[in-house]
Design a protein around this nucleic acid. Sequence first.
DNA 1: AAACGAATGTTGAATTTTCAACAAATGTTT
DNA 2: AAACATTTGTTGAAAATTCAACATTCGTTT
Lengths: 186, 186
Amino acid sequence: MDRRIQKTRHSIMNTFIDLLAEKGFEKITINDIAERANINRGTVYLHYVDKFDLLDKCIETYVELLLHHCANSADTILSVSAFQSVFEYLEKNFTIYKLLLSYEGVGFFRNRLYAIIAQTVTEVVGIKSGNSALSNDVTTHFLTSGFIGVLEWWIHNSMPCSVQEAVEQLLYVLEPYTKHLVSHQS
Amino acid sequence: MDRRIQKTRHSIMNTFIDLLAEKGFEKITINDIAERANINRGTVYLHYVDKFDLLDKCIETYVELLLHHCANSADTILSVSAFQSVFEYLEKNFTIYKLLLSYEGVGFFRNRLYAIIAQTVTEVVGIKSGNSALSNDVTTHFLTSGFIGVLEWWIHNSMPCSVQEAVEQLLYVLEPYTKHLVSHQS
DNA sequence: AAACGAATGTTGAATTTTCAACAAATGTTT
DNA sequence: AAACATTTGTTGAAAATTCAACATTCGTTT
């Protein structure tokens, strides 16, 4: 992709996130964004049709960033090092995800994350457990929901424990399913 | 000036300063700059003919920034608040000016600064002292050289005293000339 | 209700940046 | 010395951004 596109989109999204934290979504105007990002107002419309479209794309982007960060670190999303990567990435970008996760558009971000993680979990469950095809759906949604619940808890409570501890406890809870589903190579 | 020009020049100069601090001038390549600034290599040549030209423009820019910062704060360069502004600005951008002032291209930066300050001092001296036209040149160069000497000392020794103290002592030294030359309105 | 300023989208022409490809110069390795 | 990779500048076409101008909508003021 053209460098210019990357730069202006980064610039727009970053200032959008900043303004989100400062003003809240309703009070943000396209003017605000263009002005602070030092970008022509028309250019914003060249990439996003709306304030709402911008929010959507923003969420989409940060969901994908979160996932890419753990997908890169290991072969399957359920590996130990993948867990670690997710928490570490969240720790680094704490303010952004706290915002996106606890904002009015809560549903959007959570649903998007849920859908994608559920898909990956489905694949892993399908591959690793050759047996009961009946309980696969239940297993998938149980694990996905549980996992996301932990992430939400950790972010909402401003990282009440270290990454290390979070991963350890998560693995402990997953112990019963670990044997068949979670791969342990570091 | 077009926003794009401002942005790319800022970007180029900033990464150039960074690389100057890291590698030193000789080891810097146009590739380095373009790569780190995330700018097309050709674009660099669109603004600067050379590594050397870039250094020149860089010095020119930072000299002017320094002067604009004190020219804005008061009517004449020799006012009290102007002194304060200069030192405050140097304090904020310490690393950059320490680099430009102590680097191999020392002469360039100092000479450029000297020329511009000397010109302003000449004007002030010419205006404020209607008397002995003979000693004007001597006065000008004495004051200019003294002033720049203090700046250099302050930067080279990593700001050994506070801005407040520096300005006070400078005013104390200038006391004999102050009556006729330095304006005291804040 | 009318007037008003501010924000919204849209448009077309001008300008800048990008990209890829090139030839030449430089420096390093074998 | 020859082969080699790297850096240097340059070029032209493609793409993106800017700017200024416009009509429209929205919320507020009078």
